[in-house]
Amino acid sequence: MRFLSAFALLSSTLFLTACGGGDQNVRLQNAEPATTDAIQTITIARVTDIQSGPHISQAALNECELQTQFPELLTQKAAEKGITVQTTTDFDQTEKGYQLAARYDQIISEGNPFIGHRKFTQIHLTLYKDGDKLAEADLGRHSGGGMFAGYKSSCSVLGRTVEANAEDATLWLQTPVDKARMGNL
């Protein structure tokens, strides 16, 4: 009986850890939103920028479609919350209305289906209204592929982190607090 209890505890702990540990959004205490207006429409670049440096997996960029995946997923997730996301090839934060600049600061892709995945994506967002900067946020999510998830590809597991980033971005757009850090940061 003791063995079964220990096994159940270990299994649930591994499951939660592998799935990213649940909702770990970080809120700023006593922080005021950058705008009290409900954002209904926002424009974002069709291709997400990349911060150059050692924390970007070039192999992941070459193999996966991460740069177009975030705007696509943000469009879907935001629509569920009543926010229309327009994508453009000529992003200009000085345009009228709400503009959202997005940049990957980290893309870490380690491991594989046989030894386990260790994936992480971090996105930096800057929200503008009519050319004026309102707020910035950093969103980071990790995944190990999930317990008993089968043999998932690196791009599939990275895609799960990007999807969680898009969910966090949607939540932040509902109450855009400056210098917010969300997810697994």
Rank of each mutant, 00 (worst) to 15 (best):
N112A: 02
R2E: 12
L127V: 14
A60Y: 10
M147L: 15
S11P: 03
E163P: 00
T75M: 06
A164T: 08
L28H: 09
D37H: 07
G144W: 03
Q106Y: 00
Q24C: 04
L66F: 13
A79I: 12
D23A: 00
M182N: 08
F15Q: 09
G145E: 07
C155H: 11
K119E: 07
L74T: 13
D105E: 15
K96N: 06
V177W: 08
A38Q: 13
E167R: 01
E80C: 00
S11H: 04
V47K: 14
A78W: 04
T121A: 02
P113H: 01
D23C: 00
N112K: 05
T89G: 05
T48F: 01
T43A: 03
G97V: 13
E167G: 01
K152F: 05
H55R: 15
F114T: 15
R141P: 00
Y151E: 11
G82F: 07
A78K: 03
Q29M: 05
H117V: 02
R141H: 10
I107H: 01
P71V: 14
E95P: 00
L173A: 02
G140T: 11
S153T: 13
K77F: 02
A166N: 06
F70Q: 06
S154A: 08
G146F: 08
E72W: 07
L173E: 04
L134R: 13
G150P: 06
S57V: 06
L9M: 10
A8H: 09
G20N: 10
A166S: 06
T13C: 05
F114S: 12
R118S: 03
I83D: 03
G140R: 07
L171W: 08
L4T: 12
G144Y: 04
F15G: 04
E163A: 02
G183H: 04
G111R: 08
A60K: 10
F3K: 15
R118W: 14
V162C: 02
T84S: 05
L10A: 09
V26F: 00
E65I: 15
D90F: 06
R27L: 07
A6V: 14
V26I: 11
V85E: 12
E72Q: 15
I50M: 09
A101E: 15
G21L: 09
S154G: 07
V47A: 02
T87L: 09
A79N: 11
G159H: 05
Y151C: 01
A34S: 12
D90R: 08
T161M: 04
E136C: 01
T36L: 07
L10P: 02
K179H: 10
G131Q: 07
A31N: 11
G111V: 06
D138F: 09
L158E: 11
Q86L: 09
K133I: 12
K179C: 01
Q106W: 00
H142F: 13
A102F: 03
L61T: 11
C19M: 12
G22H: 03
V177C: 06
Q51Y: 13
G140A: 13
Y98E: 14
Y104F: 13
I107M: 01
M147F: 14
S153R: 06
A59K: 15
S109Q: 09
L4E: 14
K133S: 12
A60E: 11
S109Y: 05
E136W: 10
R27K: 08
M182W: 05
T126S: 10
N30Q: 08
S109P: 02
E136L: 02
K77M: 04
N25P: 00
T75L: 03
V47C: 00
